[in-house]
């Protein structure tokens, strides 16, 4: 197991956000944490990242217990829901930020940034500022920025929530292809079952802080283990977001 959550519990002001959560993700997998809003999926992601601390349980990455390791030492890339691009830095500086932290040489940073700009097909936009970019471009920059320091794990929090429905599908495919190309283990949070099914090869369904089912998209679709899963997938289909 590359990422392993064992018996994780977390409460916020008496609200049980995670209730004995356990799961594992193999190296190279693309996992989706799927659930309705308020189900506690983002909390799990934030605990893996080190942005929140579990009250109980172990988090292991690559076999090492990281509970006491601060987020900036875990070697994880994180794409925020609103991208959180640094507004006063150019695209290139945003992407190079994580490399600068590592005290890489200027030349090294430049090469790597150019490489990533090419990867996200934004070669000519390195000198732009975030406010000069479209939503999709911003997401691509956020993605490149998270990848720049070469993390072992990539976390994405509702990566498509802020994107126009029209371009969402396009971007979704792009992101999946990208991740496959880079070959990085990734976990993303979504409330959209279609998104989860299409992008991920492992889906973890969460409700009220508990895991309802873990499985491949097919398993979830055709063999829902609980009423909740069945109903959740069903309503999602009816809600018109479906294919």
């Amino acid at each position: 197991m590359y990422v392993e959550m064992k018996d994780i519990c977390k409460t916020f002001d008496g609200f049980q956000a995670s209730d004995h959560v356990s799961f594992g993700i193999e190296k190279g997998q693309m996992a989706a944490l799927l659930g309705p809003s308020g189900s506690g999926k983002t909390t799990i992601l934030r605990m893996i990242a080190g942005l929140d601390r579990p009250d109980f349980g172990d988090i292991r990455i690559n076999g090492i217990r990281v509970n006491d390791l601060p987020g900036n030492k875990r070697g994880i890339g994180f794409v925020f829901q609103n991208y959180a691009l640094f507004r006063y830095m150019t695209v290139a500086d945003n992407i190079g930020f994580g490399l600068e932290v590592q005290k890489k040489s200027k030349a090294e940073i430049k090469t790597r940034v150019e490489e990533l700009l090419e990867l996200i097909s934004m070669e000519d936009l390195g000198k732009r500022y975030p406010h000069q970019l479209s939503g999709g471009q911003r997401q691509r920059v956020a993605f490149a920025r998270a990848l720049a320091p070469d993390p072992g794990l990539l976390l994405l929090d509702e990566p498509f929530a802020a994107i126009d429905a029209k371009v969402r599908r396009e971007l979704r495919n792009w992101l999946r292809d990208m991740i496959e190309r880079v070959g990085i283990t990734s976990i993303f949070v979504t409330h959209d079952q279609e998104e989860a099914m299409e992008v991920a090869n492992q889906v973890i369904i969460i409700n009220q802080g508990k895991i309802e089912q873990i499985g491949t998209p097919d398993e979830i679709c055709f063999h829902p283990k609980t009423d909740f899963v069945a109903e959740f997938i069903e309503t999602e289909r009816f809600s018109g977001k479906g294919r």
């Binding site: 601060p70 987020g71 890339g77 925020f80 829901q81 640094f86 006063y88 930020f97 994580g98 932290v101």
Partner: peptide, 26 residues
């Protein structure tokens, strides 16, 4: 937005760098 600080942290930045490079410009 705290996300700016968290983003800096996830990119490996310590408090000082986060403050001077990310928060201060804001």
């Amino acid at each position: 937005d705290r996300q700016y600080e968290e983003a800096a942290m996830m990119l490996g930045a310590g408090r000082t760098r986060t403050f001077f490079k990310v928060i201060l410009p804001e």
